[in-house]
Design a protein around this nucleic acid. Sequence first.
DNA 1: TCATGATCATTACAAATGAAATGAATGTCA
DNA 2: TGACATTCATTTCATTTGTAATGATCATGA
Lengths: 160, 160
Amino acid sequence: MDDQADLLDLDCFLPYRLAVIAARVSKAMSVLYAEKFGISIAEWRVIAHLAGSGRVSIRDIHARVNLDKVKVSRAVSRLEEAGLVLKASNAADNRLLDITLSDEGWSVYRQIVPLASGFEADLLSALDDTERAALERVFEKLHARLDENVEAARSLYPKV
Amino acid sequence: MDDQADLLDLDCFLPYRLAVIAARVSKAMSVLYAEKFGISIAEWRVIAHLAGSGRVSIRDIHARVNLDKVKVSRAVSRLEEAGLVLKASNAADNRLLDITLSDEGWSVYRQIVPLASGFEADLLSALDDTERAALERVFEKLHARLDENVEAARSLYPKV
DNA sequence: TCATGATCATTACAAATGAAATGAATGTCA
DNA sequence: TGACATTCATTTCATTTGTAATGATCATGA
């Protein structure tokens, strides 16, 4: 009876549950475009971001899309080879790239959007309004709490 | 104004949001044990499962812990090298392994549990009761919906 | 102006990953 | 019993991944 207190049930453990549901959703989602368009999850994120952001650099994408900088660089290169993305050097700063969707990139994007939206709508339709609203707040609050932890760590190891 | 309808805001897209929060939480969590005990996320999952399940095979762990079978096999091998896990062959079926935590494995587990529980409690304390309850239902309902999709796919491509 | 440091994208390299193949053990059924 | 298929764990191999350089460009300040 005191032994139980020292045990941790993985099935009820929040980090594990989040990882499992996120992996399942990502996997199910990627089935919609992976085979049909030959696009990875990282590449889809890049495309989706480009569609909403005009011409941006690798660094911009990296900062906005929660992907490693190297991963973005490679995803953009593959997309360029596939003809979905155009690279140009930034006139004002030659270190930067101006990355945009090509016509074909837009075309692919427009084909994926209804699939993605439909998939999401299907998931969300399983929830009622209060659950959707609560989930919204959960995202915000968890991020806020994680931000606090980052801040706390920063104050422990300042200015490295 | 009709253009907007075809756009998809990644920041509001459920699969993306789940992936981001799960990755952040997993990362923050793994910091607690990765460096200190030299254990990966997969290895932590194996240990946590062994602590609650007595002697089990690779296949059992694979089925219960949402990890690739090969990944489990490798995680168990590394844990055995590190002395945290014991491998024995199953008396009734020589294809199976009986995998258990060693004394040191238990020791490591007991050290990690309070860290993990504390981390989780810290996250959950950011939420109120209704949000925690809603999150619980969200997990259930999303899994149920994804199960339905699997069933639907199975009926499209039967008995392959 | 020009030396030093910062920033950006890419490359190099080692480690991790996953799909398919392998080998050993068991189940099945004529 | 014995051929054949299945199951389990591991290995193989090609690909992906992330960390740490690299090279190129820009910013800063003496």
